[in-house]
């Protein structure tokens, strides 16, 4: 799947071109100048703001659109392979009472696969 769509999912939204930012507004210089000014908030506030910015950026890394020409391959990729679907070749019943009736009619024992979260769904 050498596709633009899946490549784009991994990419991040582009930041402004650094070359277009004047040197006088670079972050280090800006902070140095601001820290020298009496009106600047305390270093603790600055540190908190920088930390928050580092942890929670603007939504600049949002997912990008899926290319229509790659849709079918992605749709298939996410679905189970034949190897992963072997368990579905068992003729499962999903109603215990109906299974009971069928077992009585056919003279067979019942096997019940009971899980917290339906074994044929949920996960």
């Amino acid at each position: 799947m050498d596709d633009k769509a899946s490549r784009s999912v991994g990419s991040r939204r582009r930041l402004p071109n650094v070359a277009s930012i004047p040197p006088e507004v670079d972050a280090v210089g800006f902070l140095r100048r601001r820290l020298c000014r009496r009106s600047f908030p305390s270093p603790v506030v600055v540190a908190a703001v920088l930390f928050a910015a580092a942890c929670y950026g603007p939504r600049g890394d949002a997912a990008e659109p899926i290319a229509p020409d790659k849709f079918a391959a992605l749709h298939k990729l996410i679905q189970p392979t034949a190897d992963e679907s072997a368990w579905l070749s068992i003729r499962w019943q999903t109603d215990l009472w109906q299974a009971r009736e069928k077992a009585a009619t056919e003279g067979k024992p019942i096997l019940l696969w009971e899980m917290d979260g339906h074994p044929l769904g949920c996960t």
Binding site: Q93, K102, L111
Partner: peptide, 22 residues
């Protein structure tokens, strides 16, 4: 339930049913 022997045994000798315990 992906084991071929299990699949064969269940399809031939049991009535298999699955349910949500919740």
């Amino acid at each position: 339930f992906a084991n071929p022997e299990v699949i064969k045994l269940l399809n031939e000798r049991f009535v298999a049913v699955a349910a949500d315990d919740w």
